[in-house]
Nucleic acid binder design. Structure first.
Length: 591
RNA sequence: CGGGGCGUAGCUUAGCCUGGUAGAGCGUCUGGUUUGGGACCAGAAGGUCGCAGGUUCAAAUCCUGUCGCCCCGACCA
């Protein structure tokens, strides 16, 4: 159906509302795609909904093509499912509670827990379903997905749809009989994601990622490079290595590194009031940050442990996940002092200086600390530090591993070329979960040897509404949005400059009909507005192909065709117009 | 949750410091003139100045509290 602008609803704005910060958020509002209801809550207006539905449909097509099966799960989850799951403690903080007010006020349900929570994702729902419905290897593998609203109590919603409290997500869950199958399922989703984002007109890169509270063995994120992104992506231009900074590794520490020879015995020296790396770097101490030991204390599953880094390095907290703790957090001074003997700022892990070493669950050091020779660390006495500290001789390290955050310019682990870093928006994430959920919920099947085995799971998310905004972030210019063909709310806009002239209206109507017959979604601007208003609005809402029909052109016997992303305006003789429109529409998706 | 900022008409905002009639631009409505890149003229409607207390003869303005929103940090698609 051709839509008439005068009867549609596109409330464009000349100025953007003050609470929009980034360009895609401003354009969402200015082009009349969405309106804000509250923080992180948006209404999709008719124009915005059209794009959202196109993205949804593309996603559905790629998921179906990959063999996934669409279903629909409730958003209101009985809290028991989450309480029985493996991540209740971590997940409850981001979940909205839903109680029945009537029952509460009647005093029939004095429980401190809610009856229901609003679903932030659905592992806890799909796994019990599959557990009860699938019991044989003959029914595996299976991959179920849905495209639905998710609710997360984001600590800080921001940037419009980019990080919202309520958002549209495609979530898929695969169940396999064995590890090889699970890997195949994972690869199939990766391939489907690549196709999907390409069809949306988005340039994405796939990067190695951290599994976070989701758990699982490995994971990739699909990233849209953008200054406004929340993530840092580390990549090598030569070999294609790409990873989230939380996960990325560099070749900074040579594998054959020889530890420096000690130049003297460990020696304590006074450092009154010095509690930062920077202060020790300054005169009179003048110890370079890369020759200082940074000692951080964390609490993992209730036990204190230490992490040692070079003073110049930052901890990539996600890498602590490799230590096997379910939940960890920085320790407080109250927890640290009785065990270490000093306040943060004077800590160290030199043998014999820790007040109560038995209370530590471990001392973990980043590989890069081995680059330090005769370095400086805290003495575990306030206002005192130690010099001539050497890793092999003086420190009691439980385990070396990679804990530091990579910095731009460090050598790629494979090629040695300098690594680069860019900001990016995460639009998709695939996880190989393993058996974390199937074990917890008892999702087992019987194999061909009559053996009972846990299903191997994977889960796969795409931020549908976030993708919508990422497209705008990537496809716009100073005048407005420039939609890729496949996700444009309308693909052809016929601008009728003289709606009161019957001959012009007739030409416009015919060209609109031709475009529609060729398969395009068509909007006809029949408003009785001045040409300037119509052109400005056309650029703002970003319809890919614009056809202008006006009295001036008709006198010359032409109409105009213009692509949103190009400067040129083609003057098309009336006699050829319909054919040219059909040809343009037919060739458009390949542009 | 910590730090910073802002709440005045549908949108953008002035006024607040130094208390005394709430002002503009855009948008909307009416009439007219216009009509190829956000027109012009004339007129009109639209505000409990986020909310609640307090100080004062008098509060948008000062004080206290509260709510909401935005930005910076940790979490996530």
């Amino acid at each position: 159906m051709i839509k008439l602008w005068s009867q549609f609803f596109i409330p464009t704005l000349k100025e953007s509302p003050a609470d929009a910060e980034i360009i895609s958020h401003k354009l969402l509002l200015r082009a009349g795609l969405v309106r804000k209801l509250g923080g992180g809550l948006y209404t999709y207006l008719p124009l915005g909904l059209r794009s959202l539905q196109k993205i949804t449909q593309l996603c559905r097509e790629e998921m179906d093509a990959a063999g996934a099966l669409e279903l629909w799960m409730p958003h209101l989850h009985p809290v028991e499912f989450w309480q029985e799951g493996p991540r209740w403690t971590a997940a409850r903080e981001i979940m909205y509670r839903a109680d029945s007010a009537g029952q509460q006020s009647a005093g029939r349900r004095p429980s401190p827990e809610p009856e229901f929570v609003l679903g932030p994702t659905h592992e806890e729902i799909i796994t019990p379903l599959v557990k009860s419905e699938i019991t044989s290897y003959r029914d595996l593998p299976k991959n179920f997905y849905q495209i639905a609203t998710k609710f997360r109590n984001e600590i800080r919603p921001r940037y419009g749809l980019m990080r919202a409290r309520e958002f549209v997500m495609k979530d898929a869950y695969s169940f396999d009989a064995d590890d090889a199958g699970a890997t195949r399922s994972y690869r199939a989703m990766e391939a489907a994601y690549t196709k999907f984002f390409a069809r949306c007109g988005l340039k994405t890169i796939s990067v190695e990622a951290d599994t976070g509270v989701m758990g699982g063995s490995f994971s990739h994120e699909f990233m849209v490079p953008a200054e406004v992104g929340d993530d840092d992506v580390v990549f090598c231009e030569e070999c294609g290595y790409a990873a989230n900074r939380q996960k990325a590794v560099s070749g900074l520490v040579p594998a054959d590194l020889k530890d420096a020879a000690p130049t003297g015995a460990v020696e304590e020296f006074p450092t009154p009031g010095i509690v930062t790396i920077a202060a020790l770097e300054a005169a009179p101490y003048s110890v370079p940050a890369d020759q200082q030991f940074k000692t951080l204390l964390y609490v993992g599953d209730g036990k204190l442990f230490a992490v040692v880094l070079r003073g110049c390095d930052d901890l990539a907290e996600a890498k602590l996940g490799a230590l096997g703790f379910n939940l960890f957090r920085p320790a407080t001074p109250e927890e640290i002092i009785p065990i270490m003997g000093a306040r943060p700022g004077s800590l160290g892990v030199v043998r014999g200086t820790i007040k109560n070493p038995g209370a530590l669950a471990g001392i973990f050091a980043d590989h890069a600390v081995r680059l330090i020779g005769n370095g400086v660390t805290g003495a575990n006495r306030d206002g005192q530090h130690l010099r001539n500290v050497n890793v092999a001789r003086d420190l009691a390290i439980t385990k070396f591993d990679d804990f530091r955050s990579v910095r731009e310019g460090e050598p790629c682990p494979k090629t040695g070329r300098p690594l680069r870093i860019c900001r990016a928006i995460e639009v998709g994430h695939v996880f190989k979960l393993g058996t974390k959920y199937s074990e917890k919920f008892g999702a087992v099947y019987t194999d061909d040897q009559k053996q009972s085995r846990f299903m191997i799971m994977g889960c796969y998310g795409i931020g549908i509404s976030r993708t919508l905004q990422a497209v705008i972030e990537q496809c716009h210019d100073a005048d407005g949005i420039a939609w890729p063909w496949n996700v444009a709310p309308f693909q052809v806009l016929v601008v009728l400059l003289d709606p009161m002239v019957p001959a012009a209206a007739e030409v416009a109507r015919k060209l609109a009909a031709a475009a529609e017959a060729a398969g395009a979604d068509v909007l006809l601007d029949d408003r009785n507005e001045r040409p300037g208003v119509k052109f400005k609005d056309a650029d703002l809402i970003g319809v890919p192909l614009r056809i202008t029909v006006g009295g001036r052109g008709l006198k010359e016997g032409i109409v105009e065709m213009k692509w949103r992303t190009e400067k040129d305006v083609a003057k098309v003789p009336l006699a050829e117009a319909e054919a040219r429109v059909r040809a343009a529409v037919a060739g458009a998706p390949a542009r």
